[in-house]
Amino acid sequence: MSILVDRETKIICQGITGKAGAFHTAACLEYGTKFVGGVTPGKSGTQSEHGLPVFNTCHDAVAATGADVSMTFVPAAFAADAAMEAADAGCSLVVLITEGIPTLDMVRLREYFDQKGTLLIGPNCPGIITPGQCKVGIMPGYIHKPVEKGCRTVGIISRSGTLTYEAVWQCTTRNIAQSTCVGIGGDPVKGLNFIELLEMFESDEDTDAMIMIGEIGGTDEEDAAKYIERHVSKPVVAFIAGQTAPPGKRMGHAGAIISGGEGTAQSKVAALKDAGVTVADSPAGIGEAMASLL
C-alpha cells in the first residue's frame, strides 16, 4: 500500500512543453509512472516529445484521458490559476512544483481548493513519490527503496527538498523502504500539511513508522506534535532544520523565517519531544534514529 498515488494513478503535466515540465515528465515516465497527457495552451492536437497528447485546457485533458492527478510546472505568476483550473477540471490531487507563488494567491487558491474538495501538495516542493510505482515530481527516483516483503517501511513528510533526499538515502542505505514520500513545500501557505499526512500514514497498513522533516517558521510542527500525542500510535522520528538560523531572515524558503519570536527550531523540537517523538540532533542521524526504533 501507499498513500495518495500508486501505479494506477493517471497523471497529466501542466506545462509539459516547457523546459522543466518536459524534462521532469521524461524522468517520471522513465521511473514507470503513468503519465497520460499534458496541457499547454495553444498546442492542442500536437504530441509532446514523450509522445503524449497535448491539450489546450485541463478540462480537455481530463475528459480525454481520465487523469486524476496534475503535476503543475506553470511559472509563478500564473501557477495558482493553473492549479485552480486543474481542480475545476476534476483532478482530485494537484502537485504544485512551482516556486515563488505570491502568498495571497495561495490564500485564494486554498479557499478554492477547500470548496472543491481538491487536495494540494506544495507549492515550492519536490512532489510525491511512491517508490517503485509512481513518481510525481522532481526528486531523483533511484535513491528510494520500494516496499518489499520482510522489509521495514517508513512514510516521509518534509518541508524541504534535498534534505528529504538526505533522509531517504539514509533509510535506503539502512535497508528501510519508503511507502510514500511527500514534499509538502517551503511556503507559508500550502496544501497538505503534517497532520493530514500523518493521519494517512497512520492508517496505511504498509507504513510502519513516519519521518517528519520540519524547519523554522510558523507553528506546523507544534500543531503536528499535539496531533501525534493524541492520534498517532506508530513511531515518529523528526528533524528540524534551522537551529542556527538568525531571527528575521528568510532562509531560502519563503516560509522559513523566525518572526516575532515565533517559529524557532527550539520551540518545535521541545513540542515534538514532549509528544514522544524521537528528534534527531543531526541531519546525518535521521536514518539511524529510525533504524533504532524499528
Partner: peptide, 23 residues
C-alpha cells in the same frame, strides 16, 4: 543545494563546535 539542507548544514557545523559564516 536546497534551503533545508543548507540550514541543516549550518546546524551540523554548530553541532561540531564550529560557526557558519553564511547560508
Amino acid at each position: 543545494n536546497g534551503a533545508g539542507l543548507a540550514m541543516s548544514t549550518m546546524d551540523i557545523i554548530k553541532l561540531h563546535g564550529g560557526e557558519p559564516a553564511n547560508f
